[in-house]
Design a protein around this nucleic acid. Structure first.
Length: 477
RNA sequence: CGGGGCGUAGCGCAGCUUGGUUAGCGCGCACGGUUUGGGUCCGUGAGGCCGUCGGUUCAAAUCCGACCGCCCCGACCA
């Protein structure tokens, strides 16, 4: 594996683009910055969708769908919100062959239109909480794009909730942050740092934004999911009011939270290697691929039959495919599935049938060390276990990488050095101006103020003033 | 919008400096055979308005100009 910490960022881009291409995840579209997600890439997104959706349902959320078009005036109702998003809006000015009276914005996010609907739906404290999620596409006209990480249009889910009290809304915000962190760690095997966004990095219109930050293989930070406490800002802008138990008119407290197709990019950049994609077993659309091997036509039937039997025995336990393609050598197939990141490969040939075993190869351990013989009788017991072992192994590897590239620093000089090869962790009491200075001088930003704090007091790494919190600093995507 | 690179077959590229046969190579694709335990090998074949427009010239992929587009690095980015 090439070391991207010391190399140019062009090299990392090249490596990343190659994996996306080799693994057959996505393609460029005729429209600049818009990505075509190919079938295999989409199955990966479906896995992410399913795992997240399961968690949303388990926390009492339901799905709904809101329109793609939002009247421009809706965005203008929340001043910070429109200010934050206006540079990146796609605006529809014509429809039905005529100029529209009011331009329509292609949603960059849906707080406004959902806020408008919630105002109609919420009258009483009995209507609360409203816990709705939508799976949708959004458009943000970014100047510079990157497959999966920042595309003009992307798929995501956005949850929007309304609550009767501030405490409930704050609790919801943190609960969903926790859902994201849990998903990232347990399913995507990506270690993340949950924390609060700094003032300058928070969502336009939020009271507080929370994030899970992951470290990519070049030491840069990727915001992998966000959860916002919106206070009463949007409720006031859209008149989301209700009568409480004592017949007093109150503004609701709202939250929003989202995770996007960017997660696919995060998986690539966290686990991928020179050979291609490496997928965590829990997310892999295909967890095990069986490659049949035969030399003579006379062996073909028996080998395929054995392959089908193995597939059938495993099918109820995991996602398994048998590669029956004609005209490709086993070596070619190995390579093909390795590029696609399939965690386990089972090879079955005449020798294996004779010895009543199968050759199993781990994607996360290339070469001979990743190969082992498993008795045919033990596959139901051992293959799922192996997948769990891989899931754990790649997570631990990612944790080890990240932790060895986070430096605790207590001087600005050390911070500058640390963010060149990873994250820095230091006391922070800076304001927006200090953050701007930090970015100018180091290209790094406050990635988050972690939920887990060491306690005690220190001196701000930039200004030297007293500080009560530590922050994570790094360069971001 | 600034800096750099590049537009030639589906993909990756050579040819351009010094204009001149029918524009080439690798991969991929189609067909036939051969092979299959780490990307088999051989043969045959299909596939091109050389980014667009204009200029110079007897003659332009090649020289000149303009434009368009793409990639990378910045700026921008909850």
């Amino acid at each position: 594996m090439a070391d991207f910490l010391t190399s140019q960022s062009e090299d990392f881009s090249k490596w990343y683009n190659e994996i996306v291409q080799k693994a057959d995840l996505a393609d460029y579209s005729p429209v600049r910055g818009c990505m075509v997600i190919k079938p295999y890439g989409y199955t990966l997104w479906e896995r992410i969708h399913d795992e997240l959706d399961r968690r949303f349902k388990a926390t009492g959320h339901v799905n709904a769908y809101f329109p793609l078009f939002i009247p421009m005036s809706f965005l203008e109702k929340e001043s910070e919100h429109v200010e934050g998003f206006s540079p990146e809006l796609a605006v529809v000015t014509h429809g039905g062959g005529a100029e529209l009276e009011e331009p329509l914005v292609v949603r960059p996010t849906s707080e406004t239109i959902i806020g408008h609907m919630y105002a109609k739906w919420i009258q009483s404290y009995r209507d609360l909480p409203v816990l709705i999620n939508q799976w949708a596409n959004v458009v943000r006209w970014e100047l510079r794009t990157r497959l999966f990480l920042r595309t003009t249009e992307f798929l995501w889910q956005e949850g929007h909730t309304a609550h009767a009290t501030r405490a409930e809304a704050v609790e919801e915000t943190l609960r969903m942050l926790d859902v994201y962190a849990d998903f990232a760690m347990k399913e995507a095997a990506i270690p993340v740092l949950p924390g609060r966004k700094s003032e300058s990095e928070k969502f336009a219109g939020a009271v507080a934004s929370y994030t899970i930050e992951a470290m990519m293989k070049d030491g840069k930070a990727l915001q992998a999911g966000t959860s916002h406490f919106l206070g009463q800002n949007f409720a006031k802008a859209f008149d989301i009011q209700f009568l409480d138990e004592s017949n007093v008119l109150q503004y609701a407290w709202t939250t929003s939270w989202g995770m996007s197709t960017r997660m696919v990019g995060a998986v690539v950049m966290t686990h991928g290697d020179d050979q291609g994609l490496v997928l965590p077993p829990h997310l892999a659309p295909i967890q095990v691929v069986i490659v049949p091997i035969w030399r003579k036509d006379s062996e073909r039937a028996a080998v395929l039959d054995a392959g089908r039997q193995v597939k059938q025995r495993l099918a109820s336990l995991l996602r398994v495919e048998l590669d029956e393609r004609e005209g490709y050598s086993p070596g070619w197939k190995y390579n093909d599935w390795e590029m696609r990141g399939v965690p386990l490969r089972i090879e079955i040939g005449p020798r294996d049938i004779e010895n009543q075993n199968v050759m199993v190869a781990r994607r996360d351990t290339p070469g001979r060390e990743g190969k082992m013989l498993v008795p045919m009788s033990a596959i139901e017991a051992q293959i799922p276990e192996l997948l769990e072992a891989i899931q754990l192994a790649i997570y631990n590897k990612a944790v080890a990488f990240r932790d060895s590239h986070i430096a605790d620093v207590d001087s600005y000089e050390q911070l500058k050095h640390a963010v060149e090869v990873g994250f820095a962790r230091a006391w922070w009491a800076g304001n927006i101006e200090d953050e701007a200075r930090l970015k100018d001088e180091t290209k790094a930003t406050v990635r988050c103020i972690p939920i887990e704090q060491p306690g005690g007091k220190g001196r701000c790494v930039l200004t030297g003033e007293p500080a009560t919190e530590v922050a994570i600093f790094g360069k971001a995507y």
